[in-house]
C-alpha cells in the first residue's frame, strides 16, 4: 500500500511545475534554450493528457539581438513526464491558449514546418510525436465561462 502511495505521488509530481527555475534548468539542460538568445518569456501554459500520459505545454519566447531589430524565436515546447522535449513548435504570434485532453488550442492558425494545413487546434497522439492540425472558430472554444468552472485549464 505504501509503495502504491509513493508511486502515485511520484507520478503526480512529474506533471507538476513546482518552479520556473526548474523548468528553466530543464530547458537549458535539453539545449532548448540558446545561449546566444535572450529569453524574454517562459511559462507553463497547461498540461496535455496524451495516451494516458501527462505532457507539459511550455510557451517560450526568445529574441536574437540584431543591428536594429531583434528577431523572435517563439516556440511551444511539449515536455514529457520526465521533462524531456518531445516537440518544439515554432510560432510567430500564435501563442498557446489552453489544453483540453490531448488538444492544444492556440491563438490563430499556425503551420508546422510550413506544411499545410494550418490550424489553431493541435491534436497530439503517439506519445506526442504525431500532431494533427485542425481549425475551430474562436467563438466555439470548448471551455466553460469562468463562472461555471472550478479550476483553470490543465
Amino acid at each position: 500500500m505504501k509503495r502504491i502511495l509513493i508511486l502515485f505521488l511520484a507520478l503526480a509530481a512529474t506533471a507538476q511545475v513546482s518552479s520556473r527555475d526548474q523548468l528553466y534548468a530543464a530547458l537549458l539542460e535539453a539545449k532548448v534554450l540558446n545561449p546566444d538568445r535572450q529569453l524574454v518569456h517562459l511559462s507553463h501554459t497547461c498540461t496535455l493528457d496524451i495516451d494516458g500520459g501527462k505532457y507539459l505545454v511550455v510557451d517560450l519566447q526568445e529574441i536574437v539581438k540584431s543591428e536594429t531589430s531583434p528577431h523572435g524565436v517563439n516556440r511551444i515546447i511539449l515536455l514529457d513526464s520526465q521533462w524531456k522535449p518531445v516537440q518544439k513548435i515554432e510560432y510567430t504570434n500564435h501563442r498557446p491558449l489552453f489544453c483540453l485532453e490531448n488538444r492544444l488550442y492556440v491563438y490563430g492558425d499556425l503551420a508546422i514546418d510550413n506544411l499545410a494545413p494550418e490550424g489553431n487546434v493541435l491534436t497530439f497522439s503517439k506519445q506526442g510525436r504525431v500532431i494533427k492540425l485542425s481549425h475551430i472558430e474562436a467563438n466555439a472554444y470548448p471551455v466553460p465561462i469562468t463562472r461555471d468552472r472550478k479550476s483553470p485549464p490543465q
Binding site: N34, D36, V64, S66, E67, T68, S69, H71, E90
Partner: peptide, 25 residues
C-alpha cells in the same frame, strides 16, 4: 530596416541579418 544603412557594420556583412548567432533562418 535590418542593417541600419551604410553607417553600420551590418551593411558590409550581414546586410539582411540572416546568420546572426542565435538566429534560426
Amino acid at each position: 530596416v535590418e542593417s541600419g544603412g551604410p553607417g553600420s557594420s551590418a551593411w558590409t556583412g550581414r546586410a539582411m541579418q540572416i546568420g546572426v548567432p542565435g538566429d534560426t533562418g
